[in-house]
Design a protein around this nucleic acid. Sequence first.
DNA 1: TTTTAGATTTAGAATTAGTCTAAATCTCGC
DNA 2: GCGAGATTTAGACTAATTCTAAATCTAAAA
Lengths: 134, 134
Amino acid sequence: MRKNTKGQDTEQKLTPQREVVLQVIRDTEQHPTAGEIFEAARKRLPGISYATVYNSLRFLREAGLVREISFGDSASRYDREVERHDHAICTNCGKLVDFNLPDAAGLLRVAARKSQFKAESVQLTLLGLCPECH
Amino acid sequence: MRKNTKGQDTEQKLTPQREVVLQVIRDTEQHPTAGEIFEAARKRLPGISYATVYNSLRFLREAGLVREISFGDSASRYDREVERHDHAICTNCGKLVDFNLPDAAGLLRVAARKSQFKAESVQLTLLGLCPECH
DNA sequence: TTTTAGATTTAGAATTAGTCTAAATCTCGC
DNA sequence: GCGAGATTTAGACTAATTCTAAATCTAAAA
């Protein structure tokens, strides 16, 4: 890590590539996969490579700017919403939406007691039919 | 689909290979990956192929005899417990344990209301430290 | 009992998501 | 402008899983 004369961290981190990846994710309501992000990023920054998209996604995830979500079927998806929240997945069309369960803190407490774990976070996934599919 | 003279479905489905795969999963408290299942199955039925393990896992999953669980890191794991339950994952050692949250029905109702989905099931994942790691 | 159609298994090729590598490029502080 | 360290790139690589096509099995029909 680089420091300036005052000992502060002076690394410039949000490079153009990373910024484009972040914008792609922020510009959609959807939850795109790395492949979809690559395609969209390429339109704004032709020449960006697949590896850079992955590097950027790791960086953004570690910086807390995006969230990675993965459920069974293949590729991870990325979510612009970084606050704690839950997911609903449509078993018919595959649509994934965010929502917030009330009293997440209480849920965390109960889950910790039941599992004997020291809880850090809880996340709930609902499987069902989205409004369009029922 | 084959039928006998009475029109009943007579296909025999739980082949020796599938049965071995099922037994491997039932014989462990752990949640093995397909690769681990393949290794264990091979000891009981040398010559079983990787593809057959995958075929069997799909069959068993669709028959409701095992459950597939997948969280971010790579390979799916398989769970002998098929009743509704929740998972706790240790962020330090990766251990995965099952537990049951009380009032799952109430949770499902609240989640359905908040998400506007017609709920089929809910599953909660707790991330934290297992008893050995704290 | 032989035939046969469909299901299953097998080995290995193919696909897919994601990571790694090494060289080229960039950036910042000097 | 120089040089260290970070970043990007293209493409090779890996790991998980699926696909394919041929061989085998099974149970009903002949």
